[in-house]
Nucleic acid binder design. Structure first.
Lengths: 314, 314
DNA sequence: ACTGTTTATGGAACCGGTTCCATTTTTTCG
DNA sequence: CGAAAAAATGGAACCGGTTCCATAAACAGT
């Protein structure tokens, strides 16, 4: 019976049919727990993600789901709502022997600890994080992305540039805004432009905060002609602010975002695209390969390419 | 050892300590598969949800996650991307004995089939669906909600009303827009107003489609003074359209949405609130009660209350 | 102190698969 | 046609817990 189910060993066609018939007749379906116990595999992949109200996480998760759907593996979701939970959740996840592999989105964690608890658990990290990881990771080069966006503005003739982003010292330890800002500064330096501190604002990760920040920047006596917003979600807030002030995009103020979330399309936001869905798909595919062939993906880490998506806000 | 772990039976304090010490020393952690096999429980709850790019699903899922987090149960996610998948996914889920219970979001499914395959699996349905269900369900009265919204507009003096929604014949079989529209019509009838067909539009479930539809309605020779949009996401598109046409909200056109998603707050959208996060929390809590006490929640189904959230668009 | 009763503890059976090994059946070939 | 080789199949052990039962230890009462 086991042989028939898993198609592997040698069985005569005749008996194979008989078994199949019996299975069908008895309405038999294998008990996963038993299979897990004897096989030592859970056919489950854990995903640890921050509380996903941000579109970027949802899109990545979607990508993971896409791939896992087709596989024999189930996805168990561990969404972290507060930073303090990371440690405990991770511990549970590693300890309980409930997952064959773990995909971590954007959360920095102690690698030392994970290795100590369960050195053999395949872990894949998606997104740029604070800590350098020795696990396979799928990231982007946020600094380069910041430069890319900024240079794009500069090439279009903008000389006075503003920046809006979320807090750099956020409790989850996300670093994308910090790095993108670094790219922004670097590009400004290289172009010989001046960084105006008043035009640089960090605030909460909400459209409303970004809107407020942008309003302040744009209400100043001298205002920039373009703003780089480190996250698309916030860029939507900035667009709202521009609208509030009865300014026009892109003539009065140009805006470029980062991420290319779905909403960016609707809003015709020019932005730096990182393939969010794809990053999830790739992570999941790596994981499946790893689990099936007991083999790490070859380039154990990759930085996905970034590209400008030209739409209507620059 | 088992007795100590599960704290149940009688053990002398002395030996309890000894066992605990040994556990600690050997860095022991129980194997879930074995526990599942012997105990007959998987400590896993399945959630089947449509492909969740819509904020409403994410919010409901968040609520579920909130509650499960604190419990011993894990959440396995089965997100459905195409309607055809429902049957197969459901079958897998029911058949594999991998979940102790199942929470279904918004998807209509054949109850007959689920009962046939696994009559004992606790299933809870969240959201109003096409099929009447005999499983415990957490819904809202969409017709009443449509009336509520429409009457709110009428009470504010609006006599010419438009409607924007997503397709009524959508492939997933979502019925909320259909029902809300029914409420809209009912309220109009009761107020003795006239339903103007040209002011009623159904389109894709995207901001862009809604924007286009709203633009068309508002560009007509005679245009309504208020629009009821059956879903907040689309309402954002309608607001954009109003902006496109250089009209003002709420003076030229009032807008009321439905759902009260997070973005509604930022956009100051007046809307009908259904407690999305809460619906998820409640569903999960019911499920846990059901599993622990082997007992159905008492009122086996509930329609959550709806309320108008007054903000700036009416 | 001894028996009767209660409480604690070790051991065996079991959950339902997979896998390995021994046995039986089939095939191959001299 | 018979022996050796190959292929198919049934059976036992195992995965690592839980639970039930029997035995052992502690306690109580006379």
């Amino acid at each position: 019976m086991s042989r028939v189910l898993n198609g592997s060993a040698q069985v005569r066609e005749e008996t194979r049919q008989k078994v199949l018939a019996a299975i069908d007749e008895l309405n038999f379906s294998p008990n996963m727990a038993a299979r897990q116990l004897s096989g030592g595999k859970t056919f489950t992949i854990g995903v640890m993600t921050p509380f996903f109200t941000y579109p970027s996480f949802v899109e990545r998760l979607t990508g993971i789901q896409d791939v896992l759907h087709e596989s024999a593996y189930d996805l168990v979701l561990h969404s972290i709502r507060f930073p303090e939970q990371v440690g405990r959740q991770l511990h549970t996840l590693l300890t309980r022997n409930r997952v064959d592999g773990l995909i971590v989105l954007s959360l920095p964690f102690s690698e030392e600890e994970t290795r100590r608890i369960n050195p053999d658990l395949p872990i894949i990290v998606i997104d740029d994080t604070q800590a350098i990881t020795h696990y396979p990771s799928i990231t982007i080069d946020n600094v380069a992305g910041g430069e890319l966006a900024t240079n794009y503005l500069i090439e279009r003739g903008h000389r006075t540039l503003g920046f809006v982003g979320d807090r750099i010292d956020n409790p989850f330890g996300f670093v994308s805004t910090r790095r993108r800002y670094e790219g922004f500064r670097r590009a400004i330096d290289q172009a010989g432009l001046r960084l105006v501190d008043d035009w640089v604002r960090f605030g909460e990760h909400t459209q409303e905060a970004a809107r407020q920040n942008a309003r302040e920047i744009l209400s100043m006596e001298r205002r920039p002609t373009a703003i780089f917003v480190s996250i698309d979600t916030l860029a939507l807030g900035v667009l709202a602010a521009i609208d509030d002030l009865k300014l026009r995009v892109p003539d009065d103020v140009a805006v470029i975002g980062f991420d290319d979330i779905q909403a960016a399309t609707y809003m015709h936001l020019t932005t730096v695209r990182q393939h969010l869905v794809y990053s999830g798909q790739l992570g999941a595919r790596w994981m499946l390969d790893w689990l099936d062939r007991k083999d790490l993906p070859d380039p154990a880490s990759v930085a996905l390419p970034l590209e400008i998506v030209e739409r209507a806000t620059v």
